[in-house]
Design a protein around this nucleic acid. Structure first.
Lengths: 218, 218
DNA sequence: ATCCACTTGCTTGTTGACAACAAGTATATA
DNA sequence: TATATACTTGTTGTCAACAAGCAAGTGGAT
């Protein structure tokens, strides 16, 4: 009944902006932890506020609603991934961009499994109608498909990808493949040899898109 | 406040078993409809009971809990798919089993989109920890991977699949690919040309696994 | 620099919805 | 007619959402 007596852990003499930034970070971290431990259903706004060292009401106050908080978390993590990807890509285009993006994704999974896990817990839960994360998942994956399609078109233009494939179809498959592997891995991580999976995927991309094969496979 | 006065739509002179069978079917149907309309969060047990023509309490009484009902639904739909798959497969083995299964899955999506949708709404939501559907999703996908792996090993044995691939890796990719496509399609159905996707997938399977290519791609 | 009005961050009180369960009623079965 | 089984209604605790309040920071006037 009595609520936490020690609130605002580091609230002594801070600017308003600093206060908000601190509580924001603490709440997003707490939210991510709780999502990883208990999933979307098992996580309560009260628990997030309290684990972050604040009151049960702060999460609701700050993010408006449960799905508001989830949107914030998915945005944050999505941004972290986008930054890494762009850094890895540099000026690459065509087939090499496709391969580099797949490599970067694999490294992101290995280095920041927590990020990938929450992001996809939210995105996969987002297939259900009515969810607000659905829009973000849709936008995010559509953007990935558009990127891949652009790279494929560049590759065709540059002559390092065969020209008898539908860029949009192959781009969708590229993204779907990565999403699918991520899903299976989330379900049953220890049973999935991610390294082998990644290596094989790269081989498939090169083998199937590379120009020299165009006469043989179709 | 007053609850539905017209209950038990067709309850006149029925056997106990018939009563249960009727209410069970009505509730599962109602559950599927509501899941498709409102997702897992938006669906309430009371709404299911009432849409099925019974009281708000029947769903809880029959299935024990919300996740109990969801497990029942996913089992039911899963069984429908398994039946169709086995029928399509017949005695096929090796590469042809892989292709036939992919064909059967594509046809199932086209013919019974509602089934595929609910099943995957539940399975994708199941990646979150704590959910009870998680176990079923895990078991189901593991079984699919095992099947695919068996077919690949048969194909290698029979000589219609190249022998320099790791069956487990390729089997996981096969299943992951289909799951990924399903996910993207659930997110953004109108933007996905499933027919093209399917055709291309079949080509990739044949192109990448067929024995004649083994000397060229690796 | 100091005080005061105001804004912003955060907490506590409350309501309605819902899952879960307990206790009851009605319908079939032996 | 007695008992088991299908189903309904009453109730409790939890949680999201909101409203009202408290406390800490901010900016202008003196």
């Amino acid at each position: 009944m009595t609520e936490n007596p020690v609130l605002n852990p580091g609230a002594s003499s801070k600017t308003q902006a600093e206060r908000t930034a601190a509580s924001d970070k603490a709440m997003l971290d707490a939210g991510i932890s709780l999502l990883l431990e208990r999933g979307t259903e098992g996580t309560t706004l009260a628990a997030i506020g309290e684990r972050a060292g604040y009151s049960r009401g702060l999460a609701t106050y700050r993010y408006g609603s449960k799905s508001g908080l989830f949107q914030e978390i998915s945005n944050t993590v999505q941004r972290r991934w986008a930054d890494r990807l762009n850094q890895a890509l540099g000026a690459r285009r065509g087939l090499e961009a496709l391969v580099t993006a797949a490599d970067a994704y694999y490294e992101f999974i290995v280095q920041s499994p927590r990020d990938i896990r929450v992001l996809h817990i939210l995105y996969f839960a987002g297939v259900a109608p009515g969810g607000d994360v659905r829009k973000q998942a849709k936008t995010s994956f559509q953007a990935q498909i558009d990127d891949a399609q652009r790279w494929i078109e560049q590759g065709i233009e540059d002559g390092d990808i065969r020209d008898d494939l539908a860029p949009n179809t192959v781009a969708t498959q590229y993204v779907a493949h990565l999403a699918g592997i991520t899903y299976i891995w989330l379900l049953n991580a220890p049973a999935v040899d991610l390294a082998a999976m990644h290596q094989e995927f790269i081989k498939t991309i090169r083998g199937r898109l590379w120009r020299r094969e165009s006469q043989l496979t179709t």
